[in-house]
Write a protein that binds this DNA or RNA. Sequence first.
DNA 1: GTCCATGTGAGACACAGTATCAACTAGAGA
DNA 2: TCTCTAGTTGATACTGTGTCTCACATGGAC
Lengths: 147, 147
Amino acid sequence: MTVGHARGGSLLTALSDAGARVTEPRRAVAALIGAQDGHFTTAQLLTAARLEYPGLGRATIFRALDLFTSLGFVERMDLPGGGHAWVACETAHHHHAICTRCGRSTEVDDHGLADVLASVAGRSGFRVTTHRLEVFGTCASCLAATA
Amino acid sequence: MTVGHARGGSLLTALSDAGARVTEPRRAVAALIGAQDGHFTTAQLLTAARLEYPGLGRATIFRALDLFTSLGFVERMDLPGGGHAWVACETAHHHHAICTRCGRSTEVDDHGLADVLASVAGRSGFRVTTHRLEVFGTCASCLAATA
DNA sequence: GTCCATGTGAGACACAGTATCAACTAGAGA
DNA sequence: TCTCTAGTTGATACTGTGTCTCACATGGAC
């Protein structure tokens, strides 16, 4: 997976820029997130943490996840079944296309969504401040594999 | 709120069509949902149930909510803060625009979203099976009230 | 009215996430 | 390098949400 900045130096930079400390547990959580392939659930992260960093506290993982979310390094998203998951992010505003077979997530830009939202606003008089688009389906590799 | 069919006879019809029984507790849950203004959380529904139908079990409410969801009478949606809520639905496939001031939800049809999804599919080779769009902002009435 | 599959309520349980608190430590300044 | 302190940590208890089980009740077909 391409965790991008969550793995490299920019996470450390962003942490200190935000006035937060660069600590061992936070590096560990960042590494765990980086090791996840596609989206991941809290349970998966906690399991991986127990294996790889047995000393890492549960609360610490939740706190780091919160912190990384507020810094835009990860994003919380909701699965069709009702559960929720996290994805490491590369860019500022985008959406996710989740492959329901392999679990990998692809970042998707707005394409023409702005027009759709403008249309919603125009018809209903609604002033849009935030939106969330989640797309589920089968990715190109999985399609190719089953072809 | 316009719960539409969830209040009228069509819920009863749909229940029996689906081979499910039309029971007192299910009517009570339907009435509770109908009495909610806009979207509602499980906690709100449980509180309302305690007040209006003290004999109604917690598990029964969750089961009814599940059943109504599978029948398309209510839909689960996720709020920006990470929590989730339910909305009573009128039509088959649609999305919701939630007013963050008054909490009311407006149903929004696909407008040009199909094109956006086709564009996603075209660029990435992704085959889209499901999608979810949630829009948050301020509704026309709240805008008018603050104008 | 009878019968039985379906539905119910109660309560235990599992799990996710939060709050608290004493101990620890990153990192700034001397 | 050392000291100091505010930010961070792990442990643990707690809360809230949703599920599961089971004995009992009941809707509705006959």
